[in-house]
Amino acid sequence: YRNKPENNVRFMEPINGASRYREVFSTPGSCGFDEWMPGNINQSYACHGWPLLAEAIGADVDPYYTSFRLVWYDQAAKRYIRETADNSVFRWKAGRLYQYSWADGTLCERERPYVHLQKRRMRHVERVCGAEEYFILPNWFLPGPQRPEQLLRNCRKYRVLNYQYPAVKWQSLKKRLKDRNFVCSNVFRGDNI
Score class of each variant (00 low, 15 high):
Phe33Asn: 00
Asp34Ser: 12
Glu35Trp: 07
Asn40Val: 01
Asn42Val: 04
Asn42Tyr: 08
Gln43Asp: 11
Tyr45Arg: 10
Tyr45Met: 10
Cys47Trp: 11
His48Ser: 09
Gly49Lys: 07
Ala56Tyr: 00
Ala59Ile: 06
Ala59Phe: 05
Asp60Ile: 02
Thr66Met: 12
Ser67Gly: 03
Ser67Glu: 00
Ser67Pro: 09
Phe68Gln: 05
Tyr73Trp: 05
Ala77Tyr: 03
Lys78Ala: 08
Lys78Asn: 13
Arg79Met: 09
Tyr80Lys: 00
Tyr80Met: 06
Ile81Cys: 15
Ile81His: 15
Glu83Cys: 10
Ala85Asp: 06
Asn87Met: 01
Asn87Ser: 08
Asn87Tyr: 04
Arg96Lys: 14
Arg96Met: 07
Leu97Trp: 03
Gln99Val: 01
Tyr100Gln: 04
Trp102Ser: 06
Asp104Asn: 13
Gly105Met: 04
Leu107Gln: 11
Cys108Lys: 15
Val115His: 01
Arg120Ser: 00
Met122Ala: 02
Glu126Arg: 08
Val128Gly: 00
Cys129Asn: 11
Cys129Tyr: 09
Gly130Val: 02
Glu132Thr: 12
Glu132Arg: 11
Glu133Gly: 07
Tyr134Arg: 01
Phe135Glu: 00
Asn139Met: 09
Asn139Arg: 11
Phe141Leu: 08
Phe141His: 09
Leu142Arg: 08
Arg147Val: 12
Arg147Ser: 09
Pro148Ile: 00
Glu149Pro: 05
Leu151Arg: 03
Leu151Lys: 04
Leu151Trp: 00
Leu152Ile: 04
Leu152Asp: 00
Cys155Gln: 08
Arg156Asp: 15
Arg156Ile: 07
Lys157Asp: 01
Lys157Phe: 00
Tyr158Pro: 08
Tyr158Met: 00
Asn162Leu: 05
Asn162Pro: 13
Tyr163Thr: 15
Tyr163Leu: 06
Tyr163Ser: 11
Tyr165Cys: 14
Trp170Asp: 14
Gln171Pro: 13
Arg176Asp: 07
Lys178Pro: 14
